[in-house]
């Protein structure tokens, strides 16, 4: 394998990997404040892409993306308020089934609002054929958009959770909901906010990646499975781990194409998921003692 080809594979792996990382962080945000896994996380990515695609004929691209993010965040908030917020002491099986139902509803809604056609946003800079040459490999400038936006999102989120009062309040809720409530934090609002942030994050990823991977009403589920894989491998709740695991999975997938048929590409991520869940459900980057405190 030539060095140009290797760079090519790595770059394409990093591109899809950063999207997986964003989806995984979306899982983490909700998991951290509520202890539940939102099975509809992949649908937020799909919705973001689809809404931006519909808006782009009427307004400049950055505005369409921003509006798509806002609308998807609103959808996330509405879904949480309608289906989860008012439940009293819901059972975990109940919550799983509700988010699964939500993912189906969003997907079917997308099928009826748009259709089964594959669409995509225009490239943010240049066109399909524009390419930048680095180390002998040719990549689309969109790759840098994806990396830049995902990187910025991760940095901003860590600032938000580390430095702002609301971010710290959300972390308090995840550490101990009862103590947080006693400190005057409105835990219910924090949970709704976590759905808003994670829907917005998913939508943003869905927009930047749309020109490369294209958007389709069914593209949510595979993304959700891969995002969950990344979240698990990186240690559920651990966003730095998610970034590392996301890039790793993206690169493994990119290289897998050279040794096995394209059709089996998606199987790799799931096999990793099953293997890690079976033998090290705390994730690869978390010390065992920390993991031992969690329940699986």
């Amino acid at each position: 394998m030539s060095s140009e080809l290797i760079i090519q594979y790595i770059l394409s792996g990093v591109t899809s990997g950063s999207v997986y990382a964003i989806v995984a962080i979306g899982f983490n945000i909700i998991y951290n404040t509520t202890g539940i896994i939102n099975f509809a996380q992949g649908e937020f990515v799909m919705l973001g892409g689809m809404i931006a695609i519909s808006l782009v004929p009427f307004m400049p691209l950055p505005m369409a993306v921003a509006l798509a993010v806002v609308i998807t965040a609103a959808v996330g908030a509405l879904a949480q308020i309608a289906f989860i917020r008012w439940l009293k002491r819901p059972h975990v099986l109940q919550l799983i089934i509700i988010t699964i139902g939500l993912s189906i509803l969003l997907r079917e809604a997308a099928l009826h609002i748009w259709d089964e056609k594959v669409r995509s946003l225009p490239y943010f800079t240049g066109t399909v054929v524009t390419s930048v040459r680095i180390f002998g490999a040719y990549v689309s400038p969109q790759v840098f958009w994806v990396l830049g936006v995902c990187g910025a999102a991760v940095v901003l989120l860590s600032l938000f959770f580390g430095r702002t009062l609301i971010g710290q309040a959300m972390r308090a809720c995840s550490a101990d909901p009862l103590a947080a409530t006693l400190c005057g934090i409105n835990q219910k609002n924090m949970v709704t906010l976590s759905f808003v942030i994670s829907a917005a994050l998913g939508a943003l990823a869905g927009c930047v990646v749309s020109p490369i991977t294209q958007t389709h009403y069914e593209c949510g589920t595979p993304l959700a499975i891969k995002g969950f894989t990344v979240a698990i491998v990186g240690g559920l709740g651990n966003s730095t781990g998610a970034v590392a695991a996301g890039l790793l999975l993206g690169i493994i997938e990119a290289f897998s194409i050279s040794i096995m048929p394209m059709a089996y590409k998606d199987i790799i991520a799931i096999s990793i998921l099953l293997a890690v869940l079976s033998y090290r459900p705390t994730g690869l980057f978390v010390r065992r003692e920390v993991g031992a405190l969690k329940e699986f």
Binding site: N32, V92, R171, S174, G235, L236, G237, N238, K294
Partner: peptide
Amino acid sequence: AEKQVQRGTA
């Protein structure tokens, strides 16, 4: 259900 309040590290 009380055991279902799973927590992670932020």
